[in-house]
């Protein structure tokens, strides 16, 4: 994902304004990432076999991230985001593997029962 422009695009000419704008932009980007990973955590909850555990833990980790960003504790927010992301990715990886195995078994079973026919 590339940078889509910064708050300093306009001809403001004042450095502190640009810095404030960039900090605001950074905080907004952090909010966007938190939204994305929170949604991913909810979707992970639906994935067997360990998605519910990983998703729930990720949701707990991401619980107060918006408040942390708004209070200016960006380092804490980033740490929570990293933890939530790791849990979501672990749950998703297991879920994907489980789904792949289930689909392969279903296809193999379909072809095996047809080959049993006279």
């Amino acid at each position: 994902m590339g940078r889509q422009g910064s708050a300093g695009d306009g001809p403001s000419g004042v450095k502190s304004d640009m810095e404030d704008g960039q900090a605001g932009q950074r905080r907004a980007a952090l909010h966007t990432r938190a939204d994305a990973w929170r949604t991913a955590a909810v979707m992970t909850c639906l994935l067997p076999p360990i998605g519910l555990v990983c998703g729930a833990l990720a949701l707990i980790a991401l619980r107060s991230i918006a408040a942390k960003i708004d209070r200016g504790r960006e380092t804490d927010a980033q740490r929570a985001l990293r933890l939530g992301r790791g849990l979501v990715l672990a749950g998703t990886a297991f879920g994907a593997l489980f789904a792949l195995v289930a689909a392969t078994r279903m296809i193999l079973f379909s072809f095996r029962i047809t080959s049993l026919q006279p």
Binding site: M1, G2, R3, Q25, A29, T32, D35, T39, M43, L47
Partner: peptide, 19 residues
């Protein structure tokens, strides 16, 4: 590197469909 600022709806819908 700053990620693009997306509306919340776009982010949520994208992630839902990625699953």
């Amino acid at each position: 590197m700053i990620a693009p600022i997306r509306p919340r709806a776009a982010t949520v819908l994208s992630v839902i469909w990625l699953y």
